[in-house]
């Protein structure tokens, strides 16, 4: 990915310049000991909230997001962002994210952590069981329908296009007809 942004070229140039300002920087060091984007990797992304499609740059250092801000070269937002977009940093640095698969057994009152393997195998088993029991080859009129009405899918309006495509491909291959996303809300 080639990025050429005037604004950010200045950063790398000015890191040299900054060295000469040690004294002034020293004064505010509680908040600004060093430009935190210095030496960070820049990755362009598109905001995950509304549908305007604003460009954001994610700055990472050692696998951690250290800063996020508007992409100044993006023609729609030209570097600006709303408060949601400006908070992207907190999606990456977020204590509440679920980081392991969870399972809640029937009749129990708690989540428990499970392995991916176990969860995926169990889901595959349940999908097959429900599908096999409810799959309809033909309707009452004898017309071929090849569907199950006992499994439903909703969501995906925040996934990537490629994932959306895979979801519809996968769900339709299973025979689902209840396939919906947020567009209908």
């Amino acid at each position: 990915m080639e990025i050429t942004r005037r604004d950010f070229l200045k950063v790398s140039l000015s890191t040299v310049f900054l060295a000469g300002l040690g004294l002034e920087l020293e004064k505010t060091k509680a908040y600004a000991s060093e430009l935190k984007v210095k030496g960070a990797k820049e990755t362009t992304t598109i905001c995950p909230f509304c549908s305007v499609g604003c460009g954001i740059i994610v700055y990472t250092k050692e696998g951690k997001v250290v800063n996020t801000e508007g992409d100044p070269d993006h023609p729609i937002n030209e570097g600006s962002l709303c408060p949601k977009g400006a908070s992207l940093f907190q999606i990456a640095n977020n204590p509440y994210r679920v980081t392991k698969p969870l399972y809640r057994a029937p009749g129990t009152a708690n989540w428990r952590e499970v392995s991916w393997d176990w969860a995926l195998n169990r889901i595959a088993r349940l999908v097959k069981k429900t599908r096999d029991r409810t799959f309809l080859r033909k309707n009452a009129q004898g017309q071929t329908v090849n569907r199950t009405e006992a499994i439903a899918h909703v969501g995906s309006a925040a996934l990537d296009n490629e994932e959306c495509y895979l979801i519809q491909k996968f769900m339709r291959a299973l025979g689902l007809v209840y396939i919906e996303n947020q567009a209908r809300l």
Binding site: M1, K41, T43, T44, T45, I46, P48, S51, V52, G53, G55, I56, V58, T60, G63, K64, V65, I76, L88, I91, A92, R97, V98, T99, K100, P101, L102, Y103, R104, W111, A119, R122, I123, A158, D160, N161, E162, E163
Partner: peptide, 29 residues
């Protein structure tokens, strides 16, 4: 089952804005 997934900048792919512009996003971490 709760399956934890990636945030938008933890994977790679495209999304389409309201103006039908499909834009590619990269993986940052």
């Amino acid at each position: 089952f709760f399956l934890p997934c990636c945030a938008s900048f933890e994977k790679e792919g495209s999304i389409t804005n309201s103006g039908r512009i499909a834009q590619w996003r990269y993986k940052a971490l």
